[in-house]
Design a protein around this nucleic acid. Structure first.
Lengths: 144, 144
DNA sequence: CCCGACACTTGCACGGTAGCAACGATCGGT
DNA sequence: ACCGATCGTTGCTACCGTGCAAGTGTCGGG
């Protein structure tokens, strides 16, 4: 099962980005990768029910409820009963939550830009443009 | 703290790649993200001491020893005493370990190619070339 | 040969993630 | 007003990842 050079390079890019994100995650301090994912989802949605968050994260409401417990204790997320329905819960990032997410993203961004900086000039430009194109595509898909 | 559109797009690319890798990870089944990272490192090194693996993963030998325990039980890694030193341990992927890693990478690759496929034609090409450039850069750095 | 340094393992403690099953509260249609 | 469906929480259980501290065995220089 040999893989083409192209495929291998794509994988290497994926590995690099993964490394960057994971490394940034534990540079944030006291927030797990899963928690950062939850913050990212909430930031993206602006506001969400617990069930929505659970769906987006692909885990059960049970797990999510306890995840939110920890986020609330950490002061990152605000949990309030929804306006239109007493049994639903509305989750929102707190200011601190937004700041934490921002620190995470700043770290990733810096690392990514650092990686780009190591590339020789023509390829640097190509890589940058490629990532930008990919970024808009990924945003458009926004799935899962 | 506003971020430029360029930076936002870069972040979106990083988020997309991260989502792809995480989703692929739990598509593999019964292997955690950390374990897959260990397999990736071992595959990259070909063979390594426990201490080397611990360094690369940024955790203590203690943690790594137990991580390896689980990998050995799962049949993914082989642990043998090194040839030149009885106190050192040599870790290598088993065939099953390599296969598992390959499944993981196949999933990531497919998802990534799927994402590329959603892009309209000029940008698709740009994104591909960009990722390839980034891939070689990431491989060259090979850090952490 | 001894003793300090080294590589790894193990006991312990802790917190995070995860699901199932049972429950509580609420909503909404009839 | 009821009753089924929905949303969320909570008890339980289990496993993973993590570090510290202590231990074991081994290597190597003096």
């Amino acid at each position: 099962m040999v893989r083409s050079a192209t495929e291998e390079a794509l994988l290497e890019a994926a590995r690099g980005l993964m490394r960057i994100s994971l490394h940034a995650a534990d540079g944030v301090g006291d927030v797990s990768v899963v928690q950062l994912r939850a913050l990212t989802v909430l930031d993206h949605l602006g506001q969400a029910n617990l069930g929505d968050l659970a769906d987006r994260m692909g885990v059960t409401p049970s797990t999510t409820s306890r995840l939110v417990d920890r986020l609330v204790v950490a002061g990152l997320v605000e949990r309030a009963t929804a306006e239109h329905s007493r049994r639903e819960v509305t989750l929102r990032l707190t200011t601190h939550g937004r700041a934490t997410l921002q620190r995470y993203d700043d770290l990733r961004l810096a690392a990514l830009q650092g990686l780009l900086a190591t590339l020789p000039d023509p390829e640097r430009e190509v890589a940058l443009r490629g990532l930008l194109a990919l970024g808009s595509g990924a945003a458009a898909v926004g799935r899962s």
